[in-house]
Design a binder for these strands. Structure first.
Lengths: 158, 158
DNA sequence: TATTGTTATACTCTATAACTATA
DNA sequence: TATAGTTATAGAGTATAACAATA
C-alpha cells in the first residue's frame, strides 16, 4: 500500500477511461436487456430517432458490415420496432425508419439510460459533471471531424 | 442552424457520455480485432494481468453468467492464452491464469490501447486530460464502492 | 443442502463471400 | 461496371436450465 486511506485514488489515465467506458456500457446493457434488446439494437434505435438512413449509411454509423445490418434490421422489424421503406428514386435503396412502437421504445430507453447514467455520475460535484460533459463533447466532435463525419448530417433537425 | 460557426458544440450530458463511450469501445474493439480477439477476451486478459480468479469470481468481474465464462475461457485456453489450475483446498474450484504467451499478448494489447486512446484525447488541453482522468477515476471508484466491490481486492500487488 | 463449475441448447451478433437487382 | 442490399455460412458470445462433483 502506497496510498494513505484519505488520498484520492489515482488510476492510470488509460485505465480510468477504459473502466469508465465499461461501467457506462454495463449500464446501457442493463437497460437494453430489460427490454430484451442488445446494445447494438439500442444504438440503432437511438440513431433512428432523428434519421431515416439507408442500410449502407446505417452500417457506417454503427461501424458494421452491411450484411450484419441486414440481420439487425430483420430482427428489429420482426419485433415491429422498425420498417424498411422503398426509397425515393433509387430502386436499389432501402431506408429504415422507426415504427410508432419503435419510437415509443426508443423514448423509453432514452429515459432509462438518462436516469441510470445520472445516477452513475450523481456522486460528482456539479462542476465535475459539467466538465465531463464538456470534455466528452469535445472528444466526440474532434473524433468525428478527424473521421470526416458531420455529426449533424442527415438529422431531421438541429 | 441555431449555433454560430465558432460556438463550441454542446451535447446533451447523457449523449456526450454515451458517445464518448462508443468511441472508446470502437478503439478498443479495433485493437482487439487486430489480434483476432473480442472486447470480452481483451477485458478478461486485462483482468488476469494481476489476478488469478476462480470462474465464478471472473464471471462477477465481467458481469457474465458463469456458463458464458466457461466458453470464454475454453476458447482462450485453446489459443494458449490462459490456463486452468486446480485450486488450493477446494476440489470444485478452478483458477484461471495467464500463460506466458497470454501475458505477452496482454502487454501488447495494453500498449496499443494506450497509444490509440492517447491519440483519441490528444486534441485536448493537458488540463482537460487530467480532469478527465480524475473524474473518470472518481466515477469508477464510486461505482465500485456502491456495488460493494474493492477494486484492489485479489490483486497481486497494490 | 449449498456451491463451483460444465454441458446442452438456442439465440443474437458479426464477418466473409457470393449473389441479385438496379444504376 | 459500380452500387445497394440480401443470402449462405460459420464462428463467437450470451443466457437458461439441467447436470456432476465437492463442501
Amino acid at each position: 500500500m502506497t496510498s494513505t486511506p484519505t488520498s484520492p485514488p489515482r488510476l492510470d489515465p488509460v485505465d480510468a477511461l477504459v473502466q469508465l467506458t465499461f461501467a457506462v456500457q454495463t449500464v446501457i446493457g442493463t437497460v437494453a436487456a430489460r427490454h430484451e434488446l442488445s446494445i447494438t439494437q439500442l444504438r440503432m434505435l437511438g440513431i433512428l430517432r432523428d434519421r431515416e438512413p439507408g442500410m449502407l449509411e446505417l452500417s457506417r454509423m454503427l461501424t458494421l458490415e452491411k450484411s450484419s445490418v441486414t440481420g439487425l434490421v430483420d430482427r428489429a422489424q420482426k419485433r415491429g420496432l422498425v420498417a424498411r421503406t422503398g426509397a425515393d428514386g433509387d430502386g436499389r435503396a432501402v431506408h429504415v425508419r422507426l415504427t410508432a412502437r419503435g419510437r415509443r421504445v426508443a423514448a423509453r430507453l432514452t429515459e432509462e439510460v438518462t436516469d441510470e447514467l445520472s445516477a452513475l455520475v450523481a456522486g460528482l460535484p456539479a462542476r465535475d459533471r459539467d466538465q465531463l460533459t464538456r470534455i466528452a463533447t469535445r472528444v466526440v466532435y474532434d473524433r468525428a471531424a478527424h473521421d470526416g463525419i458531420d455529426l449533424d448530417e442527415g438529422r431531421a433537425r438541429a
